[in-house]
Structure formats: C-alpha cells, structure tokens
Design a protein around this nucleic acid. Sequence first.
DNA 1: CTGTTAGCGCTTTCAA
DNA 2: TTGAAAGCGCTAACAG
Lengths: 337, 337
Amino acid sequence: MRVSIDDVAARAGVSTATVSRALRGLPKVNAVTRQKVLDVAHELGYVPSPSATRLATGRTKTVGVLVPFIDRWYFAHALEGIDQELRERGYNLLLFSLGGYLHGQQRVFTEQMVRKQIDALVVLCLGLTPMELAELQRIQIPMISVGGPVKGCQGVHVDDVAAATAATQHLIDLGHRRIGHLRGGINDERNFVVPALRSEAFEATVLRAGLELKAEWIIAGDFTVTEGLAAAVRLFDLPGERPTAVFCGSDEMALGLMFEARRRGIRVPEDLSVVGIDDHDFSAPAGLSTIAQKPVEHGRRAARMLLAELDGEIGAIQEELMPFNLVQRESTAPPQG
Amino acid sequence: MRVSIDDVAARAGVSTATVSRALRGLPKVNAVTRQKVLDVAHELGYVPSPSATRLATGRTKTVGVLVPFIDRWYFAHALEGIDQELRERGYNLLLFSLGGYLHGQQRVFTEQMVRKQIDALVVLCLGLTPMELAELQRIQIPMISVGGPVKGCQGVHVDDVAAATAATQHLIDLGHRRIGHLRGGINDERNFVVPALRSEAFEATVLRAGLELKAEWIIAGDFTVTEGLAAAVRLFDLPGERPTAVFCGSDEMALGLMFEARRRGIRVPEDLSVVGIDDHDFSAPAGLSTIAQKPVEHGRRAARMLLAELDGEIGAIQEELMPFNLVQRESTAPPQG
DNA sequence: CTGTTAGCGCTTTCAA
DNA sequence: TTGAAAGCGCTAACAG
C-alpha cells in the first residue's frame, strides 16, 4: 500500500503542489494548510519517493566515496567521518571500493558507475590515473580528495612532508645517527604519492642533519602490518650493524616491525627506537611513538566542503592541511651505549 | 549537454522503446537495429539516468548496508566482501553507519532513510531493537544479517558457541586448569548476542571440563584493543594467583591483553597462554593463536543470497553457518611448572 | 520486430 | 497563498 503525494493531496483537500511545498518547508504556505498537510502525511505514513524527487530535481542527495580498500585504518576512519557529516545533512553515502585492484585484478571503475548517481565525489587516498581523473572530471560534479594529494583535485590531508620530517627529526633529536626507514608504496607507486612524499622527507631530513643515508636501510612495503613485518625481516637479516632507530611510513608497519623485533629479542626502545605515522588504534596499547593524525576529522572536513559547494557556495572546496602532532610513547628513546 | 534516450532514438531513427530494449539486451530486437542503437549511444556518450529507471521500474539496483561502525576489523572486511559481490552484479552499495551510537548518542536510524532507496538490506553485526526490526520489516524488502544472529532475521555467521568452545577447549587440551576470559558486550548488551554467546560457551566448556569457574576472572570490555588492554589491567591487578590462560572474545582484546602482559613482564605463552577469535590482520604478526573466521566470505555469501532473492529465487535467503578453524601460533602452550 | 502511449511520483513555472 | 499542468527520462503494456 504505497502512498503517493496525490493521496496526501486528495485527503488534505489541496493540490499536490501545495503538499510538496508544505512538506519541504517552503515559504508562502498558509500555516493552517501546512499543518493540515503535515498531519495527513503523518497519518497516511507518507514517505516521498527519492527516485521521483531525483528525476524532477536532477539532484540525488547522495555523495559517492571512492576507496581503494575499506579494511585499512585510515580509510575506515575517514569514511566514518564522511558518513557522520553526510548523515547529519540528510545525504546518502554511496560506496565504491576498488578493493584489491592493487593485486593484479583489473580495476573496474568507470564513469558510468557514478554518472547521474551522485551529486559529489570524495576520492579517498587514491592515486587516479590521468585517464580516470579525466573521466571523472567530465562528469562535472564537485570532487575532493582525502588522505593524500591528488593532482588536479583539491583535498584535505596532512602535510606529509612535514609529518615525516617531524618523525625523523624526533629520532635525530634523541641522538640517533643510524636511522632506517620502512616505506610504503611497493605495489602502488603509480599515482598515489603519499609513500614517496614521506620517504623523500625522511631522506632529506637525514641528510640535512649530516647523517649517513644507507640505501639498504630503506625498505619498501605497503603500509600494512604484514608488510611491515616482512620488511623488518629483511632489515634485520642484513649483515653488519643495525640502525638504532627506524622511521616507519605508517603505524601498521611500525607495529609489524616491533613484532618481529620482539621475536628476535631486539628490545624496543633499548636496542631500537621506532616511530610511525597515524596513531592507529593499536599504537597507544603497543606504546608506539607516532605522528598522530585524525582521519575522522579529515573526512568530516572534506564532506563539509563538498556540501557547502553543493549549497551554492562556490569555491568552498579548498586544499586544506590538517594538523598532526608527535605523540611520544615508549618506543622511542635515546640510543643506548 | 545531457543526452537522453530520446536523443539516441532520434539519431538512430528508431523509437525510444527500441533504444531501451536494445540497450538492455532484451530479445526481439533485430541485430542490425541493436548494433545501430549501440553505436549511436556510444557516439553520443549516452548514459541512462538511474533516477528515471528507478522511477519507472520501482527498483533501485542498490543494496543498503547497516553497520554499527566501519572502523572495526570484522565490519570493514565483511563490507569489502559485500561490495565485491554487489559490484560484480552491477548493484550499488548504500552505506548507513550508526557510528558511535554506543557511546551515548542517539541513534538516528529510521525507516525513512532506507524506504524506497534500496532493494534489499544487510544488517551487519547489529542488535536491532524490536522496534527497529519491526520498522525495517515493514518496508518489505529482503533482509539478511551478517556477523551474528539477529532474531527475526536470517543470517550468515559462524556458530559462536562452537567457536568459543573450540577456543576454550584448546586451552583445556593444553592442560590449563586456571582459565580467565575477556568478554565483549560491556556497552552493547542490548540485543547483539555475540559477546554473550561466546561468554556462555566459555563458561559451559570450563564447567564441563570439571574446572573451577572464577567469576572475577571474567572481565567485560567491548572487543577493541583498548578495552582489551583495560580489561587486562583489571585482571592482572587482581590479588591472588593469576590464571595460566585467557580466552578472549576477539583478537583485538587478546592483543590488548598481550600488550599489557608484555608491559608487566608476564611472558606469553610461558606465564600466560592467550587465544582469541577472528584471525585479525595483526594476529599472525603477533603470533596470536586464534579461531579464524573469514568475514569477507561472510559478506559475499550474504550478498549472493540477497541478489538471488531479488532475482526471484524465493527462499534464497537462508540461515548459514560459516566455517572456522583453530590456528595455533605462539601465544598458546602447556602451562609451565 | 518496432512504435505509441501511458504512466512512475515528484517539482516547478505560470496563472489565478 | 494556491492550483493546473508540463515536464524529468525511462519502462511496459498494447498494438501493429
């Protein structure tokens, strides 16, 4: 028993136009009429059909979110923030996960998937190929990136160079002179620049401090614990002296490194200091020093800008750098002996 | 320059009906005509308007997913699985996160949010209140739960009693007689039964083995690392002798416990065996023994059933128990001394 | 195999 | 302040 706007109109003894106005809170509706309509609508259990509204207005009240994975700390939290903001404003969140496209599968994101389905798009931590970007821009909807700079697209994220520099500098300030680095981006160098930005900042900071930069102490993984552990294995298996400190491109990698260190009896921080980036949920429990960022806030901020733009506030979408801060826990200390 | 079905029809010299049929691959369309339509559509860059299709057919080609949080291991992975299956079949995934409703905020899920927006709904690990459930069922769309039994709704999940029993029995088989338990559900006992099921299975198994069940060794948290650590603090602060083994209701809690044990110099597994449930991404790196489950598969399976039902295969949605298995790593061993 | 013609359920001029 | 009517872009009978 679907009830449409006509049913409400008939029952309230007014026209559909009036029902439409009354229900949407438009001005120029008599207070009595409005109340009458509201009452009838409630009584009949009327819910407007979004499909009809979409067709009539051309707006979907829906924002698309494009993510490479869902099951990663940063993405999941950013998504949470985006969702919160959208929901508060009555917008829907249509999720597109490219899940696992990094592992050889063809990524199947096409313009068709979003065309006419969403009013705006947020691209999460994703390096788009020039072709993909062009395809998206052809749709002509507001777009914003979260979690890392995407060329040709404004975004909200931390200053990765500054963050990585702060982490590295923290180790240097503690007195470390032999510093290694676990970096991300091993499978995904194409366009997503975050791993490279952090890595380059590390190198620059080490050199700036007049320290030696040992190439074999820079090991690539993909930002996950598993890869962090694998990278740590390679690092620890290296002949010769070990670094006394390691900067990891993500907390997950740092935690992977700590697990492997533990397994080998390498004490943290006595034998090895470790610092990461993120402030992952596991970092405080594990006592990991890190550069904390707040992805939920990033998501909220991005969503807010998108909604402002949709509200007609042109130019609302801007590049925005979010704050980060060093959280010093038990995994970093001055080098011993 | 939006191009509609009429433009294609005009350009191809056929009626809109024919265009519609040709593009949807319906039978009874001349091969030549179809090719002509396809060519013109491509040439014009025509993309059908989903809004119009929805209005005309009453189907949205969209499945809603209701989650309590996104940023939890199980949810994120299940979501990934659901997304994969949906995407393959050309369905959209509309995400509803009740994010943080556990922390006192009013949860704002209403029928209106999903009404006429989705063809089917998957409820992820969520205990619905009878009122909410009734409201959802009133919408009359196929519905399925994932991750835990929801009364009044078929679902796919592991047999939590069997899984918790297996974990507990593993400790007993190793020879442990003083076993503690970190359980979930501290903030969320209302309707979501998983924490309770696991906890009760633990108690039953301990008693069945003729072991003592110490109430103070059963500590409640909420399935996260942070809560696992907090629960561990309380457990370890207890006066008197400690348990030699602990079964944790989730791997996150188990890992939190291990972090705290480490901090106190309690060796795992020498002084304390630990087993969890999940096979979280961190479990292998941490060497945590666990009962492994595969949430991505759960998600896929649920989505498949939903789609089958939507394809007219009535009765496709069934309660389904998914497999689990004990993965023995370094965190469990026979009690020492 | 193809065209005509109603809708689907709203919004939005334009009049009144 | 309200109503009539023309779409929005597609699908689905029903004819032919």
